[in-house]
């Protein structure tokens, strides 16, 4: 999957939840959304980008992926 496009999509999700004043709730919002709507290979690729330095990822997205990696990362193929 096109990592750059996935980062763009994930940043847009993060931008929506960033308006939530409670930071923890905002991160949970992003994580829950990605978990509920993203097919595993998309989430897997997102973490590839994250592990490669998270280039272009917004702060909210970076925090989310760090805090919720266990639930978001799909089981290895």
């Amino acid at each position: 999957m096109d990592g750059k496009k996935l980062v763009k999509m994930a940043n847009e999700i993060a931008a929506f939840f960033a308006a939530e004043p409670d930071r923890r709730a905002a991160l949970e919002g992003v994580a829950s959304h990605v978990k509920r709507f993203w097919e595993p290979r998309m989430r897997r690729e997102l973490f590839v980008c994250f592990d490669a330095g998270g280039d272009g990822m917004s702060p909210v997205l970076l925090e989310t992926l760090a805090a919720h990696r266990a639930t978001l990362e799909p089981a290895k193929k």
Partner: peptide, 18 residues
């Protein structure tokens, strides 16, 4: 128990080869 691909994701995954 995991969500599947949405139409635009199917296109991306097709180009990706999966």
């Amino acid at each position: 128990d995991e969500p599947g691909l949405r139409i635009p994701n199917m296109f991306d995954a097709a180009i990706d080869g999966s």
